[in-house]
Design a binder for these strands. Sequence first.
DNA 1: TCAAAAGTGTTCGATATACACCCATGC
DNA 2: GCATGGGTGTATATCGAACACTTTTGA
Lengths: 238, 238
Amino acid sequence: MNTMFIHTYVSVDCVVFGFENDQLTILLVRRGEADSHEKELKLPGSLIYNEEDVDDAAHRVLFELTGIKRVSLKQFRCFASPDRANNPEDMKWLDKAYQPNINRLITVAYLSLCKVDRKLNNISKYKQTDWCPISRIPKLPFDHNRIVNESLTEIRTWIENNPSIVFEMLPKKFTISQLHKLYEAIYNKRIDIRNFHKKVAAMPYVIALDEKQKDVSHRAARYYKFDKKVYKKMKSNI
Amino acid sequence: MNTMFIHTYVSVDCVVFGFENDQLTILLVRRGEADSHEKELKLPGSLIYNEEDVDDAAHRVLFELTGIKRVSLKQFRCFASPDRANNPEDMKWLDKAYQPNINRLITVAYLSLCKVDRKLNNISKYKQTDWCPISRIPKLPFDHNRIVNESLTEIRTWIENNPSIVFEMLPKKFTISQLHKLYEAIYNKRIDIRNFHKKVAAMPYVIALDEKQKDVSHRAARYYKFDKKVYKKMKSNI
DNA sequence: TCAAAAGTGTTCGATATACACCCATGC
DNA sequence: GCATGGGTGTATATCGAACACTTTTGA
């Protein structure tokens, strides 16, 4: 056996964005099994199986987390530095979680979006999951902090290519204000609200509903919904 | 040893674009060693070594091909379908070129740009290399045709993020007409020449030289050059 | 009546698009 | 003098950015 070439395990790691309290948040899971006392958080991920494509593995991880089968996912980079998994803590965890003597591990990073009010599958192998605001991401194992940082620029280019994905972070019925704050969080800058209204009015796939907010101590905001069919028709007409 | 998870070799494959006869071309290499009678063409690539990052492996492959150490490279996707390397011909080639019993192989695809008049390292392990117009790419092994197709959309987003890279496909001195035809090839559409002149005039890093074409049977075109320093300074001022 | 957030138009500058003729050179 | 490609300007449409007040509601 020629040992000159790497023969390695491959994992996927998913950066799942949500939106809560006017902030982008990321879904983190506790590393360690149910009975473990490990406290450290990490990105949800998994080694990939035999006979499994990386895209399928990422879908599997997200299905285990959220119960959603057809989630939007974007592969954005392979991380393969030889020393990305040689921290003693990380190696110990790999030994325990998977098997001993994983000498090298490369990972393929994915981006995904999710509504934070979604009931997560805490019954699954992830004993605990947490939405963590991006301004307060703790030190994560492996190169997960780097992955998170790179995902923040990826999310913008993704939205520019496919504006429909932002609605995956909002409830089915949402107000312009919510959408506005979401855009402000994603681009990390103030966006003029009047220009924003115009921008939304130019999106034929954002449909005004008759319904309004109730029991708010100020003028009630109108609800809107995202219409997938209108979006697809519009996109196919380009 | 848990065999549930893949334990795989990893390769890099490079789609190197050039520009010749008003067409985008891709650099292909003959599969098979010097003494082989194999005729099939493939993308240049290599398994990655122990202790080597994928980015480094891609740089190594391009250095072997072109002799350029600091070439621009963009990782754009990991291809990991379980059946991407199970064509008998491809498996036979893997056995010969690397070692027997490579049961699975995932690859990380890179995009790069090169001047076609560059002297290529035909002395290297690639016995023969060919610039092949993208309109005439033959059937390639593995999923290399798919990789090429996806690279064509990647090159545009790359240029939009970094307009300086197109000059890597042109000679040091070039005419507006060459640049114009290159943009037309990349975007695969006609671009109005007067508007294009304005666009170039708005690029402070494209510098007019005093020199003009000689011995052409029409009005001689002025030469221009790309100024890296001006580009970097401009970019840092954003 | 006050606090708090919703909703609404106009102007300006920059940028992209459409479009046609004269110029320089070699043969 | 003609064929070939080089080089030039103007008018219009579109898009993004700046900017402030009135409306609705519950407390």
